[in-house]
């Protein structure tokens, strides 16, 4: 349970961080809050030769009601939950335990892309845009659907950094609901769902049930089973949670 050795860099500007990623590419890994990456290092599931700690890069900090810098922590957002779309405010207390939210970042969660994570589901639900940058490709903007490629897999190149995530302004009168099931409050979701009704249009996602968060449609959704819950359990609970959030949001 101890990491293999690695080198460590702590850039203080975005340019410096992107230079490091450009030079080291596949051998290096950006470090955000470390709440997922540090255990992966300890279990030796990740073995980068260089960690680039983004903690002191000011360009990645800060957030507003419609845009969140990648290094904003979930705890920082929670303290200003009233400024955010209410469906995000409802999801925040489910993102790990509060001790994890003190360190865990929005960008870290999205770039890690655990299918049980709340942020990937919120990004899909809110039709978010993710701004990424590298020296090689410059700055580009991806939709949530383009960004998410598979479990723990994003469209980010090895030399690319996620800078921020943004979503359309939350309109007055929009309705929403969020629900998830976990063993303990704060544990990984075994199934979850969220819904918005904006200008009469209903959009719902189900997450933590399959390889990625999925938009609810007529065709059902893909499920996978593992140690924590069977595929049959996730199909059943996912369906119930979807029904619940869609009913709540419609009321």
């Amino acid at each position: 349970m101890k990491s293999a050795p690695f080198e460590y860099a702590r850039p203080t500007t975005l340019t410096e961080a992107l230079d490091l990623l450009d030079r080291h590419g596949e051998d290096c890994k950006p470090l955000a809050g470390g709440q997922s990456l540090v255990p992966l290092l300890a279990m030796r599931l990740a073995r980068p030769s260089l960690l680039v700690d983004l903690d002191r890069v000011p360009e990645l900090r800060g957030f507003s009601a419609e845009r969140v810098g990648a290094m904003a922590t979930n705890a920082q957002l929670e303290r200003r939950a009233g400024d955010l779309p209410p469906v995000i405010a409802a999801a925040l207390p489910h993102i790990g335990h509060f001790q994890i939210r003190n360190r865990g970042t929005v960008g870290g969660s999205l770039a890690h892309l655990d299918p049980a994570g709340e942020w990937p589901a919120l990004a899909l639900l809110l039709e978010a845009e993710l701004t990424v940058e590298s020296k090689r490709l410059g700055r580009r903007t991806l939709s949530a659907g383009q960004f998410m490629r598979g479990p723990m897999t994003t469209a980010l190149g090895a030399d690319e950094l996620l800078l921020s995530v943004s979503w359309p302004r939350w309109p007055a009168g929009a309705r929403w609901a969020f629900a998830e099931v976990a063993r303990r409050p704060g544990d990984f979701a075994l199934a979850g769902a969220a819904c918005t009704v904006i200008a009469g249009r209903t959009r719902a996602v189900v997450f933590a049930v399959g390889p990625l968060p999925q938009l609810a449609g007529d065709g059902g959704f893909e499920v996978t089973g593992d140690l924590h819950a069977s595929a049959a359990y996730r199909r059943e609970v996912g369906k119930r949670l979807l029904d619940r959030v869609m009913t709540q949001a419609a009321m």
Partner: peptide, 12 residues
């Protein structure tokens, strides 16, 4: 702030 000391590198 309460944090996990096992999920933090000392250099952080």
């Amino acid at each position: 702030d309460a944090v996990r000391a096992c999920l933090l590198l000392a250099v952080q």
